[in-house]
Design a protein around this nucleic acid. Structure first.
Lengths: 193, 193
DNA sequence: CGTGTCATGTAATCAGTTACATGATTCA
DNA sequence: TGAATCATGTAACTGATTACATGACACG
């Protein structure tokens, strides 16, 4: 089975939350779902047009905000049904790629000190992402109060936090382990390497 | 910056471990690195040819095993250097997609019972993967003894286990939470929904 | 002698990104 | 008036997969 384009469903899903323009969509996807889902303009705009042709959404020109031409999209019943139908389909797992792990599997080709350095660099990125995550979570707690999707978003963000947290802990453990290895291999009479 | 094709480096990395044919490569990538990296034949074979043209690997026809024509590839010094150089480059993070989380973020469009069901289905897949993971880890422990890459592979598999484990725990917690919500919204005088 | 696996590969297709194009509006 | 941002889009390219094609050998 071919890989299916999910941009369609991502758009429909977001449009169940708010009527929005393509521009709004891009911004909100970047901000709120950037931690688990990304989309580019080159995917969004053509797909919005297609969804309108298919009768899943309708659009309306908005003059209100200053006079800039914005096309506001609204999801139609047919679109909601399409979304719900997709939610019932099994998820295609697999084919996920983790470049850090790939590199680690080849790390016997480089000195241990360098591997430790890579772990440390990785940690920097993880900690930055963790902080960013907490900010968005706070934002969801405050701004999304009483919204029907809030509990699910909080649930999801709790996972992302836990997920990044174990990764951080794993990095720290691994660094400690590698440092021990490094020291012993230095002490040992070149039995290491 | 454009997304870079990493198949090249995955091949070079694997060839530092063993001389192999394309067929072997596909099998070992599926088995050992299937949990964090995938490649298809349509990527592997053309890339092997290209790597040979570039002088990163060399190949030799092998008649020994029965007479079937197998092209065994061996990494060259230039290839090792290329690999090591790549390992020094920063990792391009981002643009990772988690369909389960995407769906969860839209789950206010379906009944709670169904969300719980999806969590349970997800758990089935996770537990299967966890078991599979343990088998490969055992295999690495036994068959990869004294190999220079063993500690890194074990480290990596430990992470995958921890990673899937938190996800399993998160699913279980979330199901409990959703069931509580579900009960209270049934008891409550239709204040729920 | 036919089915399965070994083994190498290609064609067609789809997914997804970057970089660019265009033009209006706001604000310093 | 010039820079920043709002807003919508397209072209060109790369990445990656599926499905197919081909043929030899192994084994019952």
């Amino acid at each position: 089975m071919a890989k299916i384009n999910k941009t369609k469903y991502a758009i429909l899903g977001w449009l169940t939350k708010h009527d929005m323009s393509g521009y709004d969509l891009k911004k909100i996807v970047d901000k709120v779902s950037g931690q688990y889902w990304t989309e580019s303009n080159a995917q969004l705009y053509p797909m919005l047009k297609e969804l309108e042709i298919l009768g899943y959404v309708e659009s309306e020109l908005d003059q209100s905000s200053g006079g800039r031409k914005r096309k506001i999209y609204r999801i139609l019943q047919k679109g909601r049904e399409k979304l719900v139908a997709w939610m019932k389909t099994p998820i295609d797992e697999g084919c996920f790629r983790d470049e850090f792990l790939l590199r680690l599997s080849f790390s016997n080709n480089i000195p241990v000190e360098e591997v430790i350095e890579h772990f440390n660099e990785h940690l920097v990125g993880l900690r930055r992402r963790f902080k960013c995550l907490q900010e968005i979570k706070k934002h969801i707690k405050e701004e999304f109060a009483d919204r029907a999707d809030q509990p699910y978003l909080l649930m999801l963000y709790r996972f992302r936090e836990m997920d990044i947290d174990v990764r951080i802990k794993w990095c720290e453990d691994s660094i400690a382990q590698l440092e021990k290895m490094h020291v012993t291999s230095e002490k040992g009479t070149k039995r290491g390497k």
